[in-house]
Computed example of a mutant assay.
Amino acid sequence: MTTTPWILGLTGGIGSGKSAVAQHFIDLGVHLVDADHAARWVVEPGKPALGKIVEHFGNEVLQADGQLNRSALRARIFADDTERRWLETLLHPLIGQEIMQYLARAASPYAILVSPLLVESGQHKLTQRILVVDAPEQLQVQRTMARDQSSSEQVQAILKAQASREERLSHAHDVLLNDRDLPWLQAEVERLHTFYLTLRGGQA
């Protein structure tokens, strides 16, 4: 008898090491979906969401090849909160459907939803348990600047837009403090994985 896998939400601020953690869970054979990927799938050409976005914002949010012009759309919604909310209202339920369809196919006892905005977007409601990858803010800034060649101002602006550490941590069942090296981080992921395999429905 196949049981539906329970769903672990994995989140963390920018530069926390969330991607490295996600990759190690994949290496351990855990079925994982990235909400950012699902967000891209729902606006592909031919998907109803893209038509609605163009109808609302006009053709300037399209590239010549018919794909969504993300930077043009981003510029529009960052300048105007009501536009951003309109877009979120359209996309969040569709992204949720994509995620659930994908996770339902998991063969592992649990599956993972990775989302930088797990808490803010309400996607945590799709999960039974939440793992937060946490890192001291100074370290987040250093890592992100090194990775994206961005200025500390840009990184600070992104940090402000994401849920505060306190808010994220208040939703967490498990916290992985990533302030050491990769081998240590991977060992922590393996420890959590072993623990998660003992859980039923995400609860001890």
Score class of each variant (00 low, 15 high):
G9C: 10
G9P: 09
G13M: 03
I14G: 06
I14K: 03
S16V: 05
K18R: 04
A20E: 12
H24K: 13
V33Q: 05
V33W: 12
D34K: 12
H37L: 15
A39Q: 09
V42T: 06
V43N: 03
P45L: 03
P45I: 08
G46N: 00
I53N: 02
H56N: 00
F57Y: 04
V61H: 04
L62F: 08
L62I: 01
Q63I: 01
G66I: 00
Q67E: 07
A72H: 06
L73M: 10
I77F: 07
A79K: 00
D80Y: 00
T82I: 09
L87Y: 06
E88V: 08
T89G: 13
T89E: 13
P93F: 01
M100K: 13
Q101I: 07
A106P: 01
V114R: 07
V114P: 03
H124D: 13
T127F: 04
I130V: 15
L131W: 10
L131D: 10
V132P: 00
V133A: 01
V141H: 01
T144F: 11
A146M: 15
Q149K: 08
S151W: 03
Q156F: 07
Q156I: 11
L159Q: 05
L159F: 02
R168P: 01
L169I: 00
H171Q: 12
A172Y: 00
H173Q: 10
D174H: 14
V175K: 02
L177K: 10
R180G: 07
D181Y: 00
W184A: 14
Q186D: 04
A187L: 08
V189H: 01
R191H: 15
R200I: 03
